[in-house]
């Protein structure tokens, strides 16, 4: 049995690294939390990993727009090693602040061109909001992380999560490409067409505002549950990607096994 290995980025105000790592471990992956400055000192380490997570948080205090400075840091400090990782078609998940970073880097929605065609703007209801919301998978979504999911509930916790496109035609294109991975069942932040999560055309790079890592166990359900160790709805997102990696690369010996 092979075990894919994930890098979980931390530092500079990222604050969901521990639960994101725990979620990936529960899904069967090896997960290593690495400080961005440690990674910047040896960016070649990136190649050892089969996938990457940029967790939620308030990197650089959200100054200059959430995700902006961490995106600059990734571009300038991890540079070629990071973009090689992307080019190698390894899965990347950006959750909340991580999604904002992927957008600011231009990796979503089009990593090939890195063209900036969308943004995550301040919520239209006017501020940070923590609430649970029902999510629905996008029709024909190619996202590897959300394959086979039905409607499910997760918490959102953000102040800047409203998807805005520079040109509305982008939306139609994304829809046709199956890049709309998740939508909210109701309007929570003014997001275009209630988009909650998007993927790149390969379905491997996935950004979403809701927090799947916050609901991996029933213990953190919105209402207290007796069966607290049972899986929460967020667990399937991580299980999906681990299953995808192990099934499509059966022959591959994962880096994670060596740990």
């Amino acid at each position: 049995m092979t075990q894919p290995s994930f890098l979980i980025l931390c530092g500079d105000g990222i604050n969901c690294e521990r639960e994101t790592a725990a979620a990936l471990r529960r899904a069967g992956a090896h997960a290593e939390i690495l400080h961005i400055n440690d990674l910047a000192a040896a960016p070649e380490k990136l190649a050892r990993f089969d996938g990457m997570a940029i967790p939620g948080g308030f990197s650089f205090g959200d100054e200059l727009g959430s995700g902006q400075i961490l995106a600059l840091k990734i571009r300038h400090k991890l540079g070629k090693n990071f973009f090689d990782f992307v080019a190698a078609q390894k899965p990347i998940i950006g959750i909340c602040n991580g999604f904002q970073v992927l957008v600011k880097l231009g990796l979503l929605p089009y990593p090939a061109t890195q063209q900036r065609v969308m943004a995550l703007a301040p919520n239209l209801q006017g501020g940070f909001i923590d609430r649970w919301v029902t999510l629905e998978p996008g029709a024909n979504s190619v996202c590897k992380w959300t394959q086979g999911v039905d409607a499910f509930d997760l918490p959102i916790r953000h102040g800047e999560g409203r998807v805005v496109f520079g040109d509305d035609a982008v939306y139609d294109e994304l829809k046709d490409n199956g890049q709309i991975a998740l939508t909210y069942s109701e309007d929570v932040n003014g997001s275009h067409q209630r988009i909650a999560g998007l993927c790149d055309p390969s379905g491997l790079i996935f950004g979403l505002m809701p927090h799947p890592e916050a609901f991996v166990y029933q213990a953190t359900n919105l209402t207290p549950q007796r069966d607290f160790m049972a899986a929460g709805a967020g667990a399937q997102i991580f299980r999906n990607i681990v299953t995808h990696l192990t099934e499509t690369n059966k022959e591959k010996v994962y880096a994670g096994r060596q740990h």
Binding site: R18, E19, A22, G56, F215, V216, L222, F228
Partner: peptide, 27 residues
């Protein structure tokens, strides 16, 4: 209350709308 993140660290067992909050210690 909704302006406060009450679930980061993925351990909040009882959310802050009840009489008291509760935290799960396993995480």
């Amino acid at each position: 209350v909704r302006a406060y993140d009450h679930e980061v660290q993925a351990a909040t067992h009882v959310k802050p709308f009840a009489d008291g909050g509760a935290i799960w210690l396993k995480p």
